[in-house]
Nucleic acid binder design. Structure first.
Length: 177
DNA sequence: CCCTGATTCGC
DNA sequence: GCGAATCAGG
């Protein structure tokens, strides 16, 4: 893809906003993070917020062939502010409970809306093969996004949403999302 | 393993 | 100028 003025502008903007090269690449589309980094350097935009720095590094060289038969299937990335602690892997929860004696509820994660675990709120351009693709919100709404938590490569959803997606009829009694 | 930016250099 | 490959690091 070409580096049109518009794309360069967006690149500058996103870079200035502190997005990572891979995030920018995923948003621009059609380019790898390397392409973004290369462009950033060529534009001399590096050193984002590092007034004081004279790295002066140099090490090895050696770099074989360049272009091969590689589409460029690198991925977006991650690094979105996380607002609450969470054990990545298994954050299963007590799916059902009785409505009576129960003084302690789940933590007060009253983030934004309804949904369950803390999602990373990814846009679909940022989804990868290992991010949970569970949709959150109204697809027609502006704030629509995807869960984005690690799906562990073994499925389209994270541990939590995988359970919801599969819900063996037997498990659905009084369970509401 | 995932990710980050930095660098080199064939194209 | 471009960006894959590579490096160096978290």
């Amino acid at each position: 893809m070409n580096w049109t003025d518009e794309r360069v502008e967006l690149l500058k903007k996103l870079w200035a906003e502190g997005l990572s090269a891979s995030q920018i690449a995923s948003q621009l589309g059609g380019v790898s993070r390397n392409a973004v980094i290369g462009k950033v350097h060529r534009l001399k935009l590096s050193g984002r917020g590092r007034p004081t720095a004279s790295p002066q590094r140099q090490k090895k060289s050696a770099r074989p062939a360049a272009a091969a038969g590689k589409p460029a299937t690198q991925r977006p990335s991650t690094s979105v502010p996380r607002s609450a602690p969470m054990t990545s892997g298994a954050n299963a929860l007590k799916a059902d409970y009785d409505m009576d004696v129960m003084v302690e509820e789940l933590p007060v994660i009253r983030s934004s809306e309804v949904v369950v675990p803390i999602s990373r709120k990814l846009e679909l351009t940022e989804l990868t093969e290992r991010t949970c693709k569970w949709p959150i919100g109204d697809p027609l709404a502006e704030d629509f996004h995807f869960c984005g938590n690690d799906s562990g490569e073994s499925g389209p959803y994270c541990a939590y949403h995988a359970r919801l997606a599969f819900q063996p009829a037997s498990d659905r009694k009084r369970n509401r999302r």
